[in-house]
């Protein structure tokens, strides 16, 4: 499917591709074109800023896959994203134990999955993940646990440790319509 909904909506609004306001073309292009350039996040505040920059781009039906090792900042990023969408003031406990938490946002229900404890991809059906994909905004930690059940149309954010203990590197890997939609991302560090 080469014509995902984000692209359709963008055309419907009469926006040419790449017509984000005030984005930094050099950085975003470098971050998204090859999908393997890394955005440095100097500290937790930078993570919060990246999440806040991504939040306005999100729509129902979106899937954000957060990959990275233990302690790389997946939950921290998810928390910032949920905070940005709900207008902060929302508690976002780690869903490792509960597997999923849902939050009401102005854009619809956001589902925060943590599949760390999943033994088989099919177990995700028991968590209602299909319904979530249907009409929610879905943020998934440990997305690799889903195997082939992970939707192809998604934005993967890979978090890695950087040399400085507080710093992280984020790689945004767009798939489908996300390549185009990421041009609207306003983030310069």
């Amino acid at each position: 499917m080469r014509n995902p909904r984000g692209a359709r909506r963008r055309r419907a609004r009469g926006l040419p591709p790449g017509a984000g306001n005030g984005y930094n073309p050099a950085m975003i292009r470098s971050a998204t074109r090859a999908g393997n350039d890394r955005l440095p996040l100097a500290d937790e505040a930078a993570t919060v800023r990246l999440a806040a920059a991504l939040a306005p781009l999100l729509e129902r039906g979106d899937v954000i896959a957060l990959s990275g090792d233990l302690g790389a900042g997946k939950t921290s990023f998810a928390r910032s994203l949920i905070g940005a969408l709900t207008g902060a003031g929302e508690e976002v406990p780690s869903p490792t134990f509960t597997l999923v938490q849902s939050y009401e946002t102005p854009k619809g229900t956001l589902w925060h999955f943590d599949l760390y404890r999943l033994a088989a991809p099919e177990e995700a059906y028991e968590l209602g993940i299909e319904d979530a994909f249907e009409d929610g905004i879905v943020v998934i930690e440990w997305p690799e646990r889903l195997g082939r059940l992970l939707p192809a149309e998604r934005l993967t954010i890979a978090l890695e440790f950087a040399a400085d203990p507080g710093a992280r590197l984020a790689t945004l890997v767009p798939a489908g319509g996300w390549t185009e939609r990421l041009r609207g991302l306003q983030f310069d560090g």
């Binding site: 928390r79 910032s80 905070g83 902060a88 003031g89 929302e90 508690e91 976002v92 938490q101 849902s102």
Partner: peptide
């Protein structure tokens, strides 16, 4: 699915 025992508790926000 979500049911806080003390709905009036001040929010503990992590960021």
């Amino acid at each position: 699915p979500r049911w806080p025992l003390d709905p009036d508790a001040p929010k503990a926000v992590g960021a």
